[in-house]
């Protein structure tokens, strides 16, 4: 029934970056949105989580950096269970996990440069952040990232609210990578974008993931995009994982199981 990617499971294979162990989330007691999810993520490439709306994909991803608190289960990341950490320990974990959002979530009234350097806030004392006295190499890296997400240095001083959706998402990605993360989470990064821009953004995520060897976990509605850019696909429905494997193993039958029905295919 469940098509497991063997490489992930074998001990001694690619090191596991993130391990979810019986992760459960109930917003209301007795009504789990995530039903004891167990998944390992290794250090390579893009993993796409697909599934219908309201199936807990977003909750799953938000549990990882604890924007949502899980009800039970554990989240192993960099050698520790982070499912219950709080305060400065939680902030230290978040510094190591970049996040890309569906609606970009840039701070609209800050410039592109300020938004990208937001990725360094976890490392910079408050007064330095206030005076915008970021380290020289951080600023240099921000300019580099601006280049590598395809925007270029002349965007640095533009305000985020002057950008188009695609440009904003590029800044969002640069902000996440600016954290030098061990893992990037992307919550529906293309859902607010037109088809062409969606492809460009997925391409960029896959490209950065490969070049900087940062694993990316992406929630995505578009099955075609998921198959095209992900190395591994996790199919969820009703709070359970019903498919976990390579994109080319994903059949029409799997898709009916994930989304229900067949007429839409």
């Amino acid at each position: 029934m469940m098509a497991m990617d063997e490489a992930v499971r074998q001990p001694g294979a690619a090191p596991v970056v993130l391990r979810l162990d019986r992760l459960r989330k109930e917003y209301r007691p007795g009504l789990p949105v995530l039903k004891d999810i167990t998944l390992d993520f290794d250090k390579s490439g893009v993993t796409a989580i697909i599934g219908p709306s309201g199936t807990g994909k977003s909750t799953l991803i938000r549990c990882v950096n604890r924007l949502v608190d899980p009800t039970s289960g554990s989240i192993w990341f960099e050698g520790a269970d982070i499912a219950q950490v709080r305060g400065s320990a939680l902030r230290a974990v978040r510094r190591r996990i970049g996040m890309v959002f569906q609606e970009y979530n840039l701070v609209e009234r800050l410039t592109v440069m300020e938004n990208i350097l937001t990725g360094r806030l976890g490392y910079v004392p408050l007064w330095r952040a206030y005076l915008r006295r970021f380290a020289e190499q951080d600023i240099a890296r921000a300019f580099e990232l601006l280049e590598s997400v395809g925007l270029g240095a002349d965007f640095a001083n533009r305000r985020a609210d002057k950008l188009s959706g695609g440009q904003r998402q590029r800044v969002g990605i640069a902000r996440a990578i600016m954290q030098s993360p061990a893992l990037v989470l992307a919550d529906e990064p293309t859902s607010s974008l037109d088809p062409k821009t969606s492809v460009e953004i997925m391409e960029l995520l896959a490209d950065i993931s490969a070049k900087q060897s940062i694993p990316v976990i992406v929630n995505i509605h578009n099955v075609e995009l998921a198959k095209r850019y992900a190395r591994r696909i996790v199919g969820m429905t009703g709070g359970n994982v019903v498919y976990d494997g390579k994109p080319d193993g994903l059949t029409a039958q799997h898709l009916s199981e994930i989304y229900g029905g067949e007429e839409w295919q």
């Binding site: 950096n65 924007l67 400065s88 902030r91 230290a92 974990v93 978040r94 510094r95 190591r96 996990i97 970049g98 996040m99 959002f101 609606e103 979530n105 840039l106 701070v107 609209e108 937001t118 990725g119 360094r120 806030l121 976890g122 910079v124 408050l126 952040a129 969002g172 902000r175 954290q179």
Partner: peptide, 15 residues
């Protein structure tokens, strides 16, 4: 959402 994104970078309350 904008606040959440800043929080997700591991920034403290003052930041």
């Amino acid at each position: 959402k904008q606040v959440e994104a800043v929080r997700a970078t591991g920034a403290g309350f003052g930041h």
